[in-house]
Design a protein around this nucleic acid. Structure first.
Lengths: 402, 402
DNA sequence: GAGATTAATCAATTCATTTGATTAAAGCAA
DNA sequence: TTGCTTTAATCAAATGAATTGATTAATCTC
């Protein structure tokens, strides 16, 4: 824990700082990078040549300001590195290949039905090979594979996966050495995360949270999950349980969708339960897209659900505000964009009506940019984040390895 | 924000790491410090001589292990540095002098009655001079003065203080350039903080949170405040509003003490309101100590309040658990120790009864070690923390100054 | 066209940590 | 008692990152 640092760590950190400055502010000149980072021009020049050599960045056209020599601009080289992200759930596997700029190059979608760990891994491995067989990928740096798993599956520090909540949806998922099983087939680095946490990192790195160091992300997946970014880093808590808004108790009326002994707001956002509830009113829906149609048709039953959902979210975010005091709330996940947009637009007023005598201004709302593939894109970001993010930990010696 | 680092920062950071290792694990030998920090023996040796020279640590007696040369132990030199902490409120000013080991050397207590900023500053300045006139202090390093202010007063980034909540208790406290006014009289570094945040840092550095990197601190002051320690550092949020559990809405019945338009749980912990409420039952109390007596007498009215208080806290901490997933909850502040102890003992069961199907284990409870002077001791810790804490920020260039 | 301004790199210096060697103190074993 | 081993701590030199200072080049201004 209390470990020192040295020159080598300094070098690694500055390398990341320069890359991230180019990424966020490019096209940008070496001189401007130096000004932004408070590093000297010489240091930046050296790091930039290393970045160019490894093809993570590239030179753009010359740029002229007012006087003096024109500067050569620098920008991320999208083809300099690639990464694969998998979003796995009981009903689907989404797999994508992204480049260093965060663009989705290839996407593969499979419908599945509560597969066993062995079946899931078989499908994942073949999909990964399929995505990376491209010669363009073979010639560039491959960062690794990120895998996002749904909330009911719990991931421990050894990448063992257990089914803690929903035995019906995930039979035979108990104490599965998932990380080890994948690594037997894939040599690249593997990162396994809760899908909400993965999506959070995705938004932090490529999405709506690109420039924001304190935000919370609400993820509409199978239920309601979330993630916290504090001081620029994902904060997962002692047991990877931070940001699990779905387990909050009701702060008002209990949802008609609730059926558990210990009611919690996440139930209201459980898509399976929502489909069942709508069926009671003879509304047949099976996919998130269908909800978008109900919304456009102004279906009163669905709008009733939406209204309650907003109220629950307002309570959650008021509590989160007094707990975390974040700058921004980002909404994303598998709900159709129009619905997320409606929620984002309605919540500021709703929250203000509940709390007007504020000590501090409420956070602003943003919609996630990754859309329905937020989890897959987030998963793909995990290896990239590990390699390039300028986290303070990079600066500090790692006791466990030394 | 995105700034680089260099050798100088490395040096400063390792200096702090070595000091903190000695502080937390002393008496400890140079060789053990080297092992713990993953620094080389030579580096530790150099830093230790600098620490000895500045008298922040001292050598203890020789210690022999199994074989080899005996090692000289190192420990913090309590008289190596001093700090002053002030806990100011509408009804009192507590001022203490602490040494580098966190021991209270002198304590001064004044009763006051909603003083104006000018009156408050006059009293503070004379008290600071009184505490530091000691020759022992004059010859040692003086870290500075920390000032803890109560929740209703808001402190902005320029150390300007405003009364945002309670105009009756703090008349004329609006847009007061408090930091500037103090600095006109005191040349040492001044740190101004919310009293709950100050107490949190105190527990983190000297108290129950000494070895804990993720905890929340609930502070029973005039109302209910709190602070978050995440990854070893105080997390204050975008507008210094993080950890304000008192503003949470009720997650159940509203407190009989509530009288505001927008009910929030903090009302139940407002001591002034509690005294008034007890008066309705012909129970006359004026000071926190009196509540301790009611508790010992098993006064049913008071116990009723306490029972509700525990229920509110249970809800708050369940939410906090799913939000932050902290290791420990520390309880402290102006309530008598027996009452805080009772709360700490009751809450685990109470929380378990509300939520049994957990994804992750609930945090454990600890009582703060600072007792009734938690805020003052915490305030005194602020200058010490600034000088010695091994925060990652030390490693990174400060754009604003360069 | 001379001077000013800015970008970028080359060359040499700085400085905190590391590596390697040395000294000293104590226990262990014969 | 003596020599060997282990450990602590420091001295001396090397390493390697950023920094400082000098140089070259490109463009604008007047």
């Amino acid at each position: 824990m209390l470990t020192g640092t040295n020159l080598t760590y300094t070098k690694a950190y500055n390398f990341r700082i320069v890359f991230e400055t180019v990424r966020l502010h490019g096209p940008i000149s070496r001189a401007d990078v130096a000004r932004r980072t408070s590093l000297t021009a010489q240091t930046v020049s050296n790091i930039v040549s290393r970045l160019l050599e490894r093809q993570f960045i590239q030179e753009g056209r010359k740029l002229q300001k007012k006087r003096g020599a024109p500067s050569t601009t620098l920008e991320v080289n999208p083809n300099g590195a690639f990464s694969v992200g998998l979003d796995f759930n009981r009903d689907h596997l989404t797999a994508i290949l992204v480049d260093l700029a965060g663009s989705v190059k290839t996407k593969i979608f499979y419908e599945v039905d509560s597969p066993s760990p062995e079946e899931a891994i078989k499908l994942m491995v073949s999909t990964i090979h399929q995505l990376t067989s491209n010669p363009e990928v073979q010639n560039a740096h491959f960062c690794g594979v990120g895998i996002g798993l749904p909330g009911p599956l719990d991931i421990n520090k050894n990448n063992e996966v257990s089914n803690t909540i929903n035995p019906k949806a995930f039979p035979n998922w108990n104490h599965v050495p998932f990380g080890k099983m994948i690594k037997e087939h894939i040599s690249a680095p593997i990162f396994i995360e809760n899908n909400a946490s993965a999506a959070t990192i995705g938004e932090r790195w490529y999405g709506a949270g690109k420039n924001i160091s304190n935000f919370i992300y609400a993820f509409f997946g199978a239920g309601l999950g979330g993630g916290l970014v504090l001081n620029g880093n994902l904060y997962e808590g002692q047991n990877q349980n931070a940001g699990e808004f779905g387990y909050f108790p009701y702060m008002g009326e209990i949802s008609p969708l609730s059926d558990s002994d210990q009611p919690h707001v996440g139930e209201h956002f459980n898509l399976t339960k929502l489909y069942e509830w709508l069926r009671e009113f003879d509304i047949i829906v099976n996919r998130p897209e269908d909800l978008g149609n109900l919304y456009l048709e102004k279906n009163t039953i669905f709008l009733e659900w939406l209204e309650s959902a907003k109220n629950y979210l307002a309570s959650i975010f008021i509590v989160a505000h007094y707990m975390i005091d974040m700058e921004v709330i980002i909404l994303g996940g598998r709900l159709p964009h129009i619905i997320i947009e409606d929620i984002a637009n309605s919540l500021p007023q709703l929250m203000a009506s509940l709390r007007s005598d504020l000590k501090a201004p409420f956070p602003t709302f943003k919609c996630g940019t990754a859309g329905i593939d937020a989890a897959a894109l987030g998963a793909a970001t995990l290896p990239i984040f590990d390699l390039f993010a300028a986290q303070a930990e990079v600066l500090i010696k790692n006791n466990s390895q030394d």
